[in-house]
Every structure is written in structure tokens, then in C-alpha cells.
Amino acid sequence: MPGPVIAAAYEAQYERHPPASRTTHVVLREAVTGVMERAGLGPEDIDGLGVSSFSLHPDHVVDLAWKLGLTVRWMMQDPLGGASGVNMLQHAIRAVEAGDARCIVLVAGDALDRDALTGLNDNYNISTRDHLAPLQHGGPNALFAMLTTRHSRATGLQERDYAQIPLAQRRWAGTNPRAVYRSLMNIDDYLAGRMVSTPLRQFDCVPVVAGADALIVSTADRCDKGVRVTAIAAAHNIDDQGGDGLVTGLRSVRESFWGSAGFDPADVDIIGVYDDYPVMVLLQMDDLGLVPDGDLERFLHVDLAKRHRAVNTSGGQLSAGQAGAAGGMHLLVEAVEQLQGRRGAGQIPAARRAVVAGYGMVLYRFGSCANVVALEACRG
């Protein structure tokens, strides 16, 4: 049986303030329909479904399959937030390799209003519900503000250094018609943003949007322009929430990951790293060995500012938006579209190799899940 590939990717339009009629089920359907059309497939071709969503409840993956008119023999429901995209992809690739399914749709998305978002943040898990919410801790903004302060003290980076990440990603967002924030932004605009949780300003925090993202994983014979997965690695709960948060699970898998990827960090054309906050971009890039010599200041002011490295070319979540659980799929969709030559004005010429990292699931103080995938375009 031919090996698995990612056959197609699709993102349902992100909206900052959607109408009430654009529910979670609606955006998930939009993404599934869109990715099937892009792949030239119909419901009868799909025999697997994976979903990640914070607001699908009380429905489950089988309810979604029924409402989409799909009859499947492989299913999964993933709760891992920013790590969900790579995690579902890992399971889907293995399912196709094993012959459990031949054509799997993976979809992630949410439509969360303010009340739903507050409820999610306060009830993310038992630790949050019982120990953080009663303190009115301010949700993840406050937790990652403290992490940013700790990182600043360890590295010497200052506000204008961290600002290079949202500034660079806003420049990329200008090429992405699906990004919710596309207007040009300079350092003065950034500094004028309101303080959310010191030292995090408005543009350091992801804007919540409604939307969904989808991939199709299939056997290679169903796709003439597929994207191949060359390596996947994951490490979860590496510090038992007892560390300082400045090292992710990616550090522990870096050597084995690059040993399997088939190419080196210098060969990567497209980089996607989960960007709920700027500090997390730096931590993941450094943990993966994607910052030459570990020189973060040079990386920020030269590699990013002058586009020597193509990082989060959709604008990332900081400018494109975070559609709940779709945040774990958004950068995968961008990478696949780049490798398939579908990114229009934002296309990186002759892009052939990509690396996408996921990070998520704050158990108490820090994210506990980290994973990474290497992708390569199937071209002659």
C-alpha cells in the first residue's frame, strides 16, 4: 500500500467578531467541506475523522461524523490544545501506515464568545478550577507574563527585543487575506498597545477568533501534490510542572528528531512554532536548534526583522488569530500550503521543507505538551 501523505490543507475564514449563527459546528463543517473540495474528494472517500475542539461539547467526534454525513472506521478526539494538530497528524499517519484507514480528515476549531472563553480559562483542568480561578489569576496572560519576565532576566532581552516577533509576524500577515490583523505595525504602534499583564502588551497576546483548520491524510495514490512527513517527535510533562518553564519538551527530542528528519536546521524553508506569546516562539526555536549559536538577539533583529528565516509566515496566531483548538493546526495548514505553492503573495519561492512545532496544555504553571513534525514536498 502506498505510504501516507498530507493531501490537502484548508482554513475556514477567521473572524474576530463572528455572528451568533457562526457556531463551532458551522466553522468545523466549513473547514471539512473546504479541504475535501481542495483534495477533489467527497464524503464517500473519507474513512477517518479526527477532531480537536474546546466547544464541541456535549457532542463528540462520532456526532460530528454523523452531522457531516461521514461513515468512518477510524476516529480520534484530541484535547491537547496547541499540541493537538501535530498529535492528531502523528496518529493519522500511523493509522494510514497500518491500513486502519485510507483517507482521514483532521479538523480543529472553535467559536468562543467572551463568556465561553472565560469559562474555558477558569475550568481548563482541575488544578486551574480549584487553585488558580479562585485567585482571579487572569488566565494564561498572567502565567505567560511571569514566564516572559523570567526569560528576560535569564537572557537580558528587553521589551523592544520581544517586540520583533509580533512586528515580523504582522509583516507576514499583510500577505495573508485570512489574517484578522493585516495593517502595518511599527515599534511605536506596538508600544502604544495597552498593557495586558506586565510585561505583555496587547500585541503580545493572541486575539481570539472563530474559525477552523483541516488537513487530509491519505495514501499517496490519492494525491498528485502531497506533502510527506519525514519525522515526528513528542515529549510531554518533562518537568512535572516543577521546572522554570524556560525549557520545553522539544529540547529532549531535538537530536533524535533531526536524526530522522532527513535534513538539517539550516535546510528548513518554512518554520512554524506555536506563538500564543512571543516568548514561546523563542523557547521553541532555541530548543529545536533553529537559532544559530543560540544568539537570540541576533535572531530577533536580523533573522526575523530582515526575513532571513521564514517563521510563522501566515502572521501566526498573534496576527492571524487563535481559533481555540485550531491554534494547534493553523501553522500546519500554513506549512502545507507553502509546500504546495498555494500561498499567493506570501509564497516562499521553491519552498520544499518545513518544520512545525506544537506547544500547549497548561497543567498548572506551564505548558506540558510539546511536539514537532518535519514535512517535505513530494516533488520530482
Rank of each mutant, 00 (worst) to 15 (best):
P2H: 11
A7D: 11
Y10N: 11
E11S: 15
H17W: 12
H17R: 15
R22P: 02
V27T: 07
V27W: 00
G42Q: 13
E44H: 10
G48I: 02
S52K: 06
S53I: 08
F54S: 10
L56G: 04
V62T: 14
A65K: 01
G69H: 05
V72S: 03
R73Q: 12
M75A: 09
A101E: 01
I104M: 06
A108N: 00
R114Y: 15
Y124E: 06
R129V: 07
L132I: 10
L135R: 13
F144S: 10
M146A: 15
L147W: 03
T148W: 00
T148C: 06
T149C: 09
S152H: 00
G156V: 03
E159Y: 00
D161M: 07
Y162D: 07
Q164E: 14
P166A: 08
P166G: 06
L167K: 08
Q169S: 12
N176W: 01
P177L: 08
D189R: 04
G193F: 04
V196Y: 05
S197A: 13
S197Q: 14
S197F: 09
Q202A: 03
G211F: 04
A212G: 09
A220P: 00
A220V: 02
V227I: 14
T230P: 03
A231G: 10
A234I: 02
N237I: 13
G243Q: 09
G245D: 01
T248P: 05
T248S: 15
L250Y: 07
F257E: 08
F257Y: 09
F257T: 09
W258P: 05
A266Q: 13
D267A: 11
I271F: 07
V273K: 04
Y277Q: 07
V279R: 00
V279S: 02
L283A: 11
M285S: 06
D286E: 14
G289Q: 02
L290C: 12
V291K: 02
D293N: 13
L296C: 09
F299I: 08
H301P: 11
L304D: 00
R309Y: 04
V311K: 00
T313C: 01
S314H: 02
G315N: 07
A320L: 07
G324T: 06
Q338P: 09
G344L: 02
G344K: 04
G346W: 04
A351N: 03
A357F: 04
G360M: 11
N371P: 14
N371Q: 12
V372A: 01
A374V: 05
L375C: 05
